[in-house]
Design a protein around this nucleic acid. Structure first.
Lengths: 346, 346
DNA sequence: AATAGCACTCTAAGTGTTAGAGTGCTAATT
DNA sequence: AATTAGCACTCTAACACTTAGAGTGCTATT
């Protein structure tokens, strides 16, 4: 029984504490750990180890006579060192596939279905950001004359998003010219990323002869003014209401603050947008987050891709006490699925 | 001091109880009533009157030694008999006008702004249903070929709503025919209510000669299959999160149930849709509502009109203990404003 | 008819008490 | 030297008990 790897045991006990706490939300005592794992060590020994872990800042005490609770740092170590992904079962995957299949006809329901799926699999709030307009490819633009002074501009992107804006024209427009403009744009810009269009057209403008200049200028106006290209991302989420049943929200003001995140979506949008270009699943635990409003929660994000190009982000948010394995697996799986669904849709 | 109108006094005291309770959420005692109105009657007398009111089912006791609380029936009488509308102030109206003005460019933000305005003025949840598609007028339809087998159908209605659907065509389509179809539909259906279109086309179909028949049939297919005309109303709301700070939601499961209303929007949509065709402001207090899920709340609804035709509904929902005067005024005012804003937009 | 007085009821808040869970330390054990 | 048992100590959560105060309902009085 000598020379047991101390480090190893610390890890094991930290793991036990984290997992037990995630499961029950009750601070974990030395006895509980000893029993839970039928360990060959007594509670007393575990207490000593716990004291060490506490010194390292991995766990804490709510008060003297309470069990231990993981700190953010403790969760971090757990996630980094001995978390094994807990893949969705075949049944779960096929359930999701079925849902997505039903909901993927139109863009809106697809977004809703994905966020709902994340929520269902994990019991935390599932979040999906719409594809960044800038990163979508141009597919088609159409100008529909409504009355003498107004035109409806309709833009279709590669990921199936349709965006439309009403244009109030100051001067009278000629139908044939409108047609020429849309034909020109459709030919010229096909397949281009929306984010690159403005620059491209400006460059073209500089190198053109006078005769073509006015035409081009008009074309640019038609595209840029209406805010067609203006990014205006939206966020879809599901499960915010049911999660406030968790014990961490028994204080009603906590619950309100949490729900407020979803009412004022800005913070969340930024948060998810920020590490959209980082590959893989990102996990931000508690105070690791910069924004105060989310420092009691863990955020798991991933990006999703259409034709191998990153165009959006999705993920989950919930109490730091979440089932990391499942959440990570679910987010990972659904980012794949969403990407594929968008390719079909586009 | 003889021959005082008893009825009158009962009313006055009921009003006092209702108003005091709405303000403070604390059960109202006889002493409080007597003082609040510097009445020339003593608490003892008021107690007698209260007993009468209780017998009539207008107020109750939470427990023996508590003050009185209005029942649904009590609120009802209050609303019917001596509620005077509490009009918004000039400042408030101009504030709203400013907000609407800023948000009325596009349809989405207009809806959001209106629900937000209701919330701001009343401290209850503001709700706006999108215009019923069926009741909107047809303005324009456009078919945009995307690739060899797909067409994007775009429908524009009189209230500025743009709806689009992707059409998967089984057989190859000819561009010129597409054009003929849209031209035909635009000419034929202009100004018609969307709800009437299907019937109209069917009738036309019956009386047509063979040559035109296939054309017409195709045209109908283009319109009906894509679900362009399918009603798919949406609901906008604001303030759900902040209202759960009210004492009536101190029990967290109550709060969750309330919030659930907004997650599963069906109940609310039906509720608001139901009395859309009844003129004026409708007030449903507590158990007056049929649906169990809202029997602890009061719902205030109104319709809104574009060109004198009812096309949608809006309103508010909150605890029965709400400021009826203000809520009614706000809902009334904003239904006007919304109607006008939509006329400008359409 | 209205009121004053009074006994009665019930709650909410505060106080004590206790059981139990859990710790930390020390001394014994392996 | 590492582990463990034992034990005193701490803190919470739950329960019982008390009390002040708000409010009622009834009765006798004005």
């Amino acid at each position: 029984m000598k020379h047991v790897d101390i480090e190893q045991r610390q890890k094991k006990i930290l793991g036990a504490i984290v997992e037990s706490y995630i499961e029950t939300a009750i601070p974990v005592g030395s006895r509980a750990v000893s029993q839970r794992f039928r360990m060959s060590v007594s509670p007393a020994t575990i207490r000593n180890v716990m004291a060490d872990l506490e010194e390292k800042g991995l766990i804490t005490h709510p008060h003297t006579s309470a069990g231990r609770v993981p700190t953010d740092k403790g969760y971090r170590m757990y996630v980094d060192l001995f978390l094994e992904p807990k893949h969705l079962t075949k049944e779960e995957e096929s359930l999701i596939a079925k849902l997505i299949d039903k909901g993927c006809e139109d863009f809106e329901t697809l977004m809703q279905t994905v966020s709902k799926s994340i929520c269902m699999m994990t019991n935390v709030v599932g979040i999906v950001l719409t594809p960044r307009l800038k990163r979508s490819v141009f597919k088609h633009v159409e100008f529909i004359p409504i009355d003498s002074s107004r035109i409806l501009a309709v833009l279709i992107t590669g990921s199936g998003v349709v965006k439309s804006t009403m244009l109030d024209m100051e001067e009278e427009f000629v139908k044939s010219e409108l047609f020429r403009i849309s034909e020109f744009l459709n030919q010229e810009l096909s397949g281009m990323f929306l984010g690159d269009i403005k620059g491209y057209l400006t460059r073209r403008l500089l190198e053109q002869s006078d005769s073509f200049y006015t035409f081009l200028k008009k074309a640019m106006y038609m595209l840029s003014i209406p805010g067609l290209l203006k990014m205006e991302d939206r966020i879809y989420f599901e499960g915010a209401t049911s999660i406030i049943a968790c014990p961490e929200f028994k204080d009603i003001t906590k619950a309100r603050l949490f729900l407020k995140l979803f009412e004022e979506k800005r913070d969340l949008m930024e948060l998810f947008g920020e590490d959209m270009d980082v590959e893989g699943i990102k996990v931000h635990i508690g105070k690791e987050n910069n924004r105060k409003s989310v420092q009691e929660y863990t955020i798991v994000t991933s990006n999703y891709k259409v034709n191998d190009r990153v165009i959006g982000a999705l993920g989950a948010i919930g109490p730091t006490r979440m089932e990391y394995g499942r959440v990570i697996s679910a987010v990972s799986y659904l980012s794949d699925i969403l990407g594929k669904a968008l390719e079909d849709l586009g």
